[in-house]
Every structure is written in structure tokens, then in C-alpha cells.
Design a protein around this nucleic acid. Structure first.
Length: 941
RNA sequence: GCGGGUGUGGUGAAAUUGGUAGACACGCCAGACUUAGGAUCUGGUGCUUCACGGCAUGUAGGUUCGAGUCCUAUCACCCGCACCA
């Protein structure tokens, strides 16, 4: 009987221990399941609460899975979303998939597996990894860009862009019908053609045009338009390559030659939005660095276009764009882009052969090379001269690859004394240099100043350059030889990809003329293909499916697909109303959720995704579909988590490894080893031997009985064996520990290396927190006794700090504060409900599982997810006295305590009579006593 | 070259925005408990000095009673853009 009872007791103790120890695995599994069952994260579009929209940049589900760097942003947004919910907001916090993309197609080419299959697999793996971490995503709103129910609306938005144009005088997009009406009324004289400035016609002419011609003209105005552009064509692979697939003029795979080839492609006329994209930056909270990157990308510049007549060729003229019209008298030569239309017209017989040779050379150069080799100066004289309109001086015309056809007018006036590239060019080709800025030019290098005084400049002599700019611009306009001009270096964005795994275009060609499909015909679903080989002449794989392409004898489908950024440009709108089959999103839903309040993601999307997404939002706004024109109110860029590579040292020519501290005694080779088999810097030798067959019989030279590894910080990547899978960390320490540790590493925006070793501190903190509530033997030990002032002070200081830090995304300092709080409550042995319960609520956004578990252990029956957030009350933290540091001449010498309401005179008196202070004053006379209330006191002698 | 950012212990980092530099952790050292410890707890830990003290926030100046914080110059590293006229 007695023995039996002991056994039962042991069993009971085991059961109690199971619950009363911090058993994070059981707790996390339990609550994750419970939250799913109770649909705890489902959010409604109908709520009396204020809304808050917290969004992560959705991932491309790659085959490699998540490493510990990826969830950093997701954890911060999750904390914020949970925090806002506790603060009484209706929070939208969705997640989805950027599921179209090149890697899936590459993988399909290599393995024959359909991208839809591999994407679904990857996606499931990502989902499992994410679920492990305990995010509060509302998965009912999941979107997937490759889902026809989603891309139907991507195609629909494309049609809106195709069917609209940008009205420059109103600075907004309008439907194409308004433009047609204007043409019928007064031709295009009010609306300069953005695609081709030379197009000009009257209403009568418009009406005479054939339908083909009319549509051709409209194409030059549409926001989504067709144009010819060069692509990287690799004949050997029979495909078009992306810029980064081309290295030194040959394909990255196989090393086959790549040439530029003109293809008809879709573009988005984002340049029309340049100014609004620029000005919109003032209305959003992005980091300065981010705004600056976008400004640079847009690249607004103010200047003038000036036309120079070609000497001896009647009716021929070169128009240049310059930001420095003030330097007009310093022009020593002219440079055209090699691709410039005038080159063939103005080249003289004598120079013809040489120019052609140069053009051949340029043709052989990839865009990359032209950009990379900055130092090399090349060019060729055309034999032609233009005349300076102000003084009739004959100016030689050159061509050179440093002038780009796509920017400005594709021609520049070269002023060697003021522009370094022009200077180098003049020196290289021995072109005489005119100095218009006197001593400011030293003859050794150009001086781009705007503050020098002009000389040899006719009517500008004696004027500062800055002042001359407007004078010249006025004169140019007055003489009718040019005008002021604003340019942007941003280009219209290419929107065609010669690929399979993307959205098909809702476009058909009838006798070669492109027509939009009717909305009713959407979605144009991506047909199933058996192979992913490119079509002939570089078309995408869709071109091979002839019965899909050929609708009838003279009607063919567009065979290109849309690029990756198509689906991601508007996904934030779809989350508001993800299941709508009638519209991309209902107006009531987008009006309610409105702008994304906080958008979290990496800097790598600084320009591409953000600018396109901003443009689409503006276009949808202009056309009246949504009520706001900036998608993301506030942007947080999470830093990268770097890899922390571990190195081992093999003695050359042996299979013996020597510990880091002893490696200098041998000649060694450095090898990377798997960071996951190293504890801190100590190698797990058994695991290392098993890691690779080569090391099965490795031998080791140890220091102090351990093998110590070297450390190097680099990018986290599989090939460097330094990736850490969040699954492994969660398995070992739990999701709550993982979440808090990622935040504890440092500021969210900052890049920092991952070090698994440090996680133990956070794990210990959670265990210590647990012990405030539960004792292994006694179970829950929380009491209902009243809190002491000391305990309340700790609690309220914590409320104040956590509340502010969470709102400001300062999560690393918040975690510190939790640690301080738990440390202090532990040393006070505080087990009081009135103190511990509010701490749990504060903690819930950071460590939701343990918070929910303890919340229920305390007898609460509703979820902590909707508990009332504690309110800070100053009266508990107010101090009556302060322990002042007392400094003499700025050096702290002692400390004295004074009441905060003590008057300065009595403080001063006491300080000056203090022994320690007396000693440091060394009898010198007091000049001044600085007393800063509640901070410090400084005696100046 | 242009633009943005960062430099603080052996390590990740704090610092109420001009007021006790190094909070909170990791690591390390010493100790307690334990059959054991990679559990838990306690104490210590910027450098220097026997000590009093002195020196310390990339470097050099400046402003100030007082500077990690503001100003000037300079160096290093990271990110973005780039023959952009």
C-alpha cells in the first residue's frame, strides 16, 4: 500500500512538473491549435473600432525555405499588429505569396516539373515554417499572385492602364475616350504626344486617319503601351536573357554570345507620373535614405533644350539638352549618342568609314559594359560642324558611347572647362578648350562650379554663372532656338517578359494591330504546357502552343507574360477584399482599410516594387477606383541578418584539424563548417566527423580539451554553411524565445549578424518569468495580495517603456525592459496578480504563447489577445528625491540626495560644504554652481 | 564621382536627445547547490594603476559649466545610384 502510494505520488509529480515547468513545446502547440480553432485572427471589414493596416512584403516562396533572417520583419510587424489590437484597433495583418517568377521556371526547365507544382510545394513549406513562429496572420485573406482568381484582376488593372492616358495639364490619368474626343475636336495641339514629340495633327487629319493609324497614335499616349526595345538575345539558347544573366557579353549559362535585338514589348508610362511620384514622397513616412534613393531614381533635372544649326546642311539641326545653359560660350564640341538619328545624315564622306567602324564597335558592347568601363574614352568625329547660335562659332560634332540615346535629347553640348567627362574627352582627342571662368579653371581638371564669374561670354561677361542660367534661358526662348525643359532620368518600365510563369496579357492582335480583350473575357488563364522551351525568335514558351495563340486565322494572342512586379503592385488592395469575384476589391473595403499604416520589408525593393506600386495606386486613384493615392503611409525597412560563419583549420596535406588558438603553429587551410554543429565557437567533433564522409576519420589538435572554431561574418547562404533554420531554433527554444531573441539582437532597421549562442539569455528570461507564476512543486503561486509601492513602480515604469518602445518599433530596448522588470520582480519575490497580470498583457505581442498560457493559468477564460492594455499612471513612478551626481569642473566626484522640490540655495549650500567636494575644489573660489533639476549638479571653480 | 548611413568593451548593443558612458544580454572569471550539468542561483568583469587616481565612444580640432550626442576637418566600413549632360 505504502509503496503503491509512493508510485502514484511520483506519477502525480511528473504530471504536475509537465505543467509547472515551462514546457514551451506543449504550450505553443496547444495555443496555436486553439487560435486556429477559435478563428482568433480572423478580422472583419465591419467594426466600430478604428482600423490599422499592418503589412509585410509578401515573400517569393523559393525552394530554399526560410532562414532566420527572413522572419525578422514578419516578427516586428506581428508584434506591432498584436499591440495595436490590444490597444483597441481593428487590425488587418494578412500574408500571401508573390508566386510567379523566374526561379520556378528555371527549375522547370531543368527538371521538367511544372512551376505550378514546385510553387505549391514551396509555398506549403513556407507556410509550415511561418506557422511555427506563431504569427497572427488572417489566413482567410491569403492571396497568391499565380491564382487565376487573383491575376484576373492584375489583367483587369492592365486594361485600365491600356485604356487610359496621362493628361499633363491636369497631371492625372484619364480614360482614352477623353483623348479621342479631344483629337476629334482639335487634333493633338493641346496634348503633346509623350511617345513621339514629332507627331502633330489637326482634327480633320485625325478623322482621315485609318483605324490602324489612329490606334498607332493612341498607343503613343496609353499608360500601358507597345514599343520596340532592345533585349539581350542569345541565339544559341534561343532565348532572351535578363541583364544579370549576361556577363561580359556572353550568357551566364554556357557562355554563348548575346546580342541586342529589338523586340516589340509592353511598357508602362511611369515617366508621366515622375513628378507626382517625387512630390508624393513628402506625404509619406519613409526613411530619408529610402526617399533619397527614389529621388535619385526619378532623377529630376532642370535645364534647357537648345538647337544648333548644322553648318552647310540646310534644314538640319542638332538639339541638345543641358542643365547649364550659362556655359553656352564654353562649348567646344558636340557629342551625339551613337544611336542618334542624325548621325547618318550629317556624317561627311571623309569620315563615313571611321564612323561606321565605331558604330560596329558600339553595337558589340553590352549595356553592362558601356556602364562598367567608365575610364575608357572612345569616340569618333562625324566631320560635321554646328554653329553656336550666339556667336556663330563652328563646333565639331562627335559621337561617343558616353552619351546615352535615351536621356534628354541624346545629344550634349560639351563644355570641357566645366564638366569632367567633357574635359577628359577633349584631352583625349586633342580638342582645344575654351576657358570661360578665368582663374576658376586650372587647366588640369574641369570645375563644375556655379559660382564663378563668366568671361569670354559676350553679353554674360562679369555675371555669375548662377545668375546667367536664367538670362540665357530667357534669351534662348526669346530667340526661338529652344526652351526650358525638365527631364527625368527614370525610364518607362518594360512590362513584357519572354517567359511562361507569369500573367498572360489580355491582348490579341488582329492583323498585327493590338486590341484589348473585353473585361468579360478575363481571366486569360495561363495554359498548361508540357515544356518550357522558348518560342522561335525569342518569344516566350506560350508562342509554342499554337492552338492557344491562334484564335482564328488573323487573330493571335500576345505570347509574352507580365513581369514579377505586376502582381505585387496592387496586392495590398486585394487583402481588403480577397474573395471578391466582381471587382479587384470593393470600394467600401478599400475605403475602410485605406492606406497601409505600416509596411515592413527589405531595402532591396527600395525603387522597383515601391515605385511601381505607388504608380499603380495613383493611376487607380485617378480613374476613381480607390480613394487614396499613396499605398504605404509608413515604411519600415528591416536590416539583413548576416551569417556568422564558423571556420576550421586543416593542416595542409593531412586530415588533422587544429584549434583556432594553435593554428599559427602550422600551415593550414581554412574551411567553412556548418554553424549548426558548433556550440558558440566550440566544435561538436562527433557531429563534424559525421558531417561529410571526408571527415569520418579526421583527427584534432585541441586547446584546453576543446576545438575552437574561427569566426567570420558574411552573407547568410547555403553555400557558406552558415544558414540557420528557424524550425531548428523553435524546436530547441520555442517560438516565443525565437521571436524575442530576433528582436533583442538590435534595432529592426539595422543589419546584424546572427549568433545562436546569445539566444540562451532570452530563453532564461522566459523561464524566470514563468517561475514568478509557477513553482515546480507547488504549482501556480500567484496571490491576490495588494502590491507594494515598489512593485507598482516597477510595473508602471515597464508599462511606460514598453508602450512607447512598441509604438516606435524599438523592440530591442523593450525586450531589455522586460528583463529588467522580471529581474526586479524576482528579487522582490513578487507573485501578486495585480502586478503580474498587466505584465503578461504587455508581453503578449512579443511572446504570445507563454502569455496566453499563464493568462489562463491565472483563471482567465477569454483570450489575452483582446485583453485591455495596461494604462501607465505617473503617480506610481514619481520620485520625491533624486540622488544627484555632483561634479567639480565637469568631473563627477560624489553623489548627494536631495528632494526634487528642494530650492537651489539650500542645495548649493549643502553641496559646497560637502567634504568630498571641498577637497576637489582645492580652496579655489566658486565661479558658478549649475543645478539641473533631477539630473546633475556641477560646481565650477 | 554623387547620395544615404554607420563607427561605443572580447561580442550584440543601451544612453530619457547636451547632463553619472557601457543599461540589458552573450562570453569569460569565481563561488553555491547538485550523482551530474550545456539546469538553477550568487558575485565579479571597459582599459590602466599596489592604491589615491588617470584614461576611454574611429581620428584631430572647436562650442559649452558639461559633448557619444552640436559644429568643422579627416579616416574607415556598409548600402544605393552612376559616363544622366
Amino acid at each position: 500500500m505504502h509503496g503503491h502510494s509512493t508510485e502514484v505520488h511520483a506519477q502525480i509529480r511528473q504530471i504536475i512538473n509537465y505543467y509547472m515547468e515551462y514546457n514551451f513545446r506543449a504550450i505553443e502547440k496547444k495555443w496555436q491549435a486553439r487560435w486556429v480553432d477559435t478563428k482568433a485572427y480572423q478580422v472583419s471589414n465591419d467594426s466600430p473600432k478604428p482600423k490599422c493596416y499592418v503589412l509585410d512584403m509578401f515573400p517569393y516562396p523559393s525552394g530554399a525555405g526560410l532562414h532566420v533572417g527572413h522572419p525578422l520583419g514578419y516578427i516586428s510587424s506581428d508584434i506591432y499588429a498584436r499591440y495595436k489590437r490590444l490597444k483597441g484597433f481593428n487590425v488587418l495583418h494578412p500574408m500571401g505569396w508573390d508566386a510567379f517568377g523566374l526561379p520556378a521556371e528555371q527549375y522547370a526547365l531543368e527538371t521538367g516539373q511544372h512551376p505550378a507544382v514546385t510553387t505549391a510545394n514551396n509555398l506549403a513549406a513556407f507556410r509550415r515554417q511561418l506557422d511555427n513562429i506563431g504569427f497572427s496572420f488572417d489566413w482567410e485573406r491569403e492571396v497568391k499572385t499565380s491564382d487565376p482568381g487573383y491575376y484576373k484582376w492584375t489583367q483587369w488593372i492592365f486594361l485600365q492602364l491600356f485604356n487610359s492616358w496621362f493628361n499633363r495639364s491636369l497631371q492625372k490619368a484619364e480614360r482614352i475616350e477623353t483623348l479621342i474626343a479631344a483629337f476629334e475636336k482639335s487634333g493633338n495641339k493641346e496634348y503633346e504626344c509623350p511617345g513621339d514629340r514629332s507627331i502633330s495633327f489637326t482634327a480633320e487629319e485625325w478623322k482621315q486617319f485609318s483605324e490602324a493609324r489612329q490606334r498607332e497614335i493612341l498607343m503613343h499616349y496609353r499608360l500601358a503601351f507597345l514599343a520596340f526595345a532592345e533585349v539581350n538575345w542569345c541565339a544559341a539558347l534561343g532565348t532572351v536573357l535578363a541583364n544579370d544573366e549576361v556577363v561580359n557579353g556572353v550568357s551566364e549559362r554556357g557562355g554563348f554570345p548575346v546580342v541586342k535585338k529589338k523586340m516589340r514589348q509592353w511598357f508602362l508610362r511611369i515617366t508621366e507620373y515622375a513628378n507626382r511620384l517625387l512630390e508624393g514622397l513628402d506625404t509619406v513616412a519613409y526613411s530619408d535614405a529610402m526617399k533619397e534613393m527614389q529621388r535619385n531614381w526619378i532623377g529630376k533635372s532642370q535645364g534647357a533644350e537648345v538647337t544648333f544649326a548644322v553648318d552647310g546642311v540646310a534644314g538640319s539641326a542638332v538639339t541638345v539638352y543641358t542643365t547649364r545653359p550659362d556655359t553656352i560660350f564654353g562649348v567646344d564640341f558636340m557629342v551625339l549618342a551613337p544611336e542618334h538619328d542624325l548621325v547618318s545624315q550629317i556624317t561627311t564622306e571623309a569620315q563615313k568609314a571611321e564612323v561606321e567602324k565605331y558604330l560596329d564597335y558600339v553595337q558589340s558592347r553590352s549595356e553592362r559594359e558601356r556602364m562598367a568601363e567608365v575610364k575608357q574614352i572612345t569616340g569618333c568625329f562625324t566631320g560635321a560642324y554646328v554653329l553656336n547660335p550666339f556667336n556663330g562659332r563652328r563646333i565639331p560634332v562627335w559621337i561617343s558611347e558616353y552619351v546615352l540615346a535615351g536621356y534628354g535629347t541624346g545629344a550634349i553640348m560639351a563644355v570641357p572647362c566645366g564638366d569632367q567627362r567633357d574635359f577628359s574627352f577633349a584631352k583625349h582627342f586633342n580638342i582645344p578648350i575654351t576657358n570661360i571662368i578665368g582663374e576658376a579653371f586650372n587647366g588640369e581638371e574641369a570645375n563644375p562650379t556655379k559660382d564663378a564669374t563668366l568671361q569670354h561670354s559676350d553679353f554674360l561677361d562679369g555675371m555669375t554663372m548662377r545668375a546667367a542660367m536664367d538670362v540665357v534661358a530667357d534669351k534662348i526662348e526669346e530667340m526661338g532656338i529652344g526652351k526650358r525643359q525638365i527631364n527625368y532620368k527614370m525610364r518607362d518600365s518594360g512590362f513584357s517578359r519572354q517567359r511562361y510563369w507569369g500573367e498572360p496579357f489580355p491582348i490579341v492582335y488582329k492583323n498585327g494591330i493590338p486590341y484589348a480583350l473585353d473585361e468579360k473575357e478575363l481571366p486569360v488563364t495561363l495554359p498548361h504546357v508540357e515544356n518550357y522551351k522558348p518560342g522561335e525568335e525569342g518569344e516566350g514558351p506560350l508562342a509554342n502552343i499554337t492552338d492557344w495563340v491562334n484564335i482564328d486565322t488573323d487573330t493571335k494572342r500576345e505570347t509574352n507574360t507580365m513581369p514579377g512586379y505586376a502582381g505585387s503592385s496592387w496586392y495590398f488592395l486585394r487583402y481588403a477584399d480577397p474573395k471578391n469575384t466582381e471587382e479587384f476589391a470593393g470600394r467600401a473595403a478599400t475605403d475602410y482599410w485605406n492606406q497601409v499604416d505600416v509596411y515592413v520589408g527589405g531595402t532591396e525593393h527600395a525603387v522597383g516594387h515601391l515605385l511601381y506600386s505607388r504608380m499603380w495606386t495613383k493611376a487607380l486613384y485617378d480613374l476613381g477606383y480607390i480613394g487614396f493615392q499613396e499605398p504605404y503611409k509608413k515604411l519600415i525597412n528591416q536590416g539583413m541578418i548576416g551569417g556568422n560563419t564558423r571556420l576550421v583549420y586543416r593542416i595542409r596535406g593531412t586530415n588533422t584539424f587544429v584549434s583556432h588558438g594553435l593554428k599559427d603553429q602550422y600551415e593550414t587551410d581554412e574551411l567553412r563548417t556548418d554553424v549548426n554543429i558548433v556550440d558558440g565557437v566550440e566544435l561538436d567533433i562527433a557531429a563534424f566527423k559525421k558531417w561529410k564522409p571526408d571527415f569520418n576519420d579526421a583527427e584534432f589538435v585541441l586547446e584546453n580539451g576543446k576545438y575552437i572554431c574561427g569566426v567570420v561574418l558574411e552573407k547568410m547562404s547555403k553555400s557558406k554553411f552558415n544558414t540557420v533554420n528557424p524550425d531548428d531554433v523553435v524546436e530547441k527554444f520555442g517560438a516565443d524565445t525565437f521571436r524575442m531573441y530576433e528582436m533583442f539582437l538590435g534595432p529592426v532597421e539595422q543589419s546584424k549578424p546572427w549568433d545562436t549562442k546569445g539566444i540562451e539569455g532570452v530563453h532564461r528570461f522566459l523561464k524566470k518569468l514563468w517561475r514568478l507564476f509557477a513553482d515546480e512543486q507547488k504549482g501556480i503561486i500567484v496571490k491576490d495580495a495588494p502590491a507594494t509601492p515598489e512593485e507598482l513602480k516597477i510595473l508602471h515604469k515597464t508599462i511606460q517603456k514598453i508602450d512607447a518602445d512598441t509604438e516606435n518599433f524599438s523592440y530591442n530596448t523593450a525586450v531589455s525592459q522586460f528583463m529588467i522588470c522580471v529581474n526586479e520582480l524576482s528579487s522582490l519575490k513578487c507573485n501578486k496578480r495585480s502586478v503580474l497580470e498587466p505584465v503578461l498583457i504587455l508581453l503578449a505581442p512579443y511572446a504570445p504563447h507563454i502569455a496566453e498560457e499563464l493568462w489562463h493559468q491565472l483563471g482567465n477564460t477569454t483570450s489575452i489577445l483582446d485583453a485591455p492594455y495596461p494604462v501607465f499612471e505617473e503617480k506610481y513612478t514619481k520620485e520625491s528625491a533624486f540622488n544627484y551626481p555632483i561634479a567639480v569642473n565637469g568631473k563627477t566626484r560624489t553623489e548627494l540626495s536631495f528632494a526634487l522640490d528642494a530650492d537651489n540655495e539650500s542645495i548649493e549650500k549643502e553641496v559646497l560644504t560637502n567634504d568630498a567636494i571641498q577637497r576637489w575644489m582645492e580652496g579655489k573660489p566658486v565661479k558658478k554652481v549649475v543645478i539641473v533639476k533631477g539630473r546633475m549638479i556641477n560646481v565650477v571653480v
